[in-house]
Amino acid sequence: MAKVFIYPATSLILSDLVARFGHEPLGSALSIREHVQTPGFDSPPIQMTSEDPQKGLKWAAVEVPSGIRGRMALYGPLVEEAEAAIIIDEPDLAFGCMGCARTNELLVFMLREKEMPKLELRYPASKEEGVTFVAKIKQFLKELEVKE
């Protein structure tokens, strides 16, 4: 079982696909669940506090807007933990929406930089492309099993 970072990190479809092939999907659900379930403070809706953008300084400089640093506090540790990644370029909003374009740019760059098995695909524009899209993800995930 490999830890696979999914981009967009909010994609339930990707998360489900990774889990079906026996791997652990690393995405928003995981990091936000950790925050929401942390006892001892109350900062709805996602329990982030002003300390999170400070933690984000590890991945983005102080001139970078606080929202980006806060997001990096969620995703940065997951990228470090990741053993593989699936990146979908220009996904439809319904496929998985990550709010900040600048964070997304940084995140994709970090994933591309890291030496690990990666699959980067363009979001399908037709049904036929969709079938190929799923097949490629499936093949990538199966190959991960073999490598392990």
Binding site: S43, P44, P45, S66
Partner: peptide
Amino acid sequence: TCGAEYSGIQNEIT
């Protein structure tokens, strides 16, 4: 807003 929740200030606004 954009980024308020991730900046950890949502509670301050509320």
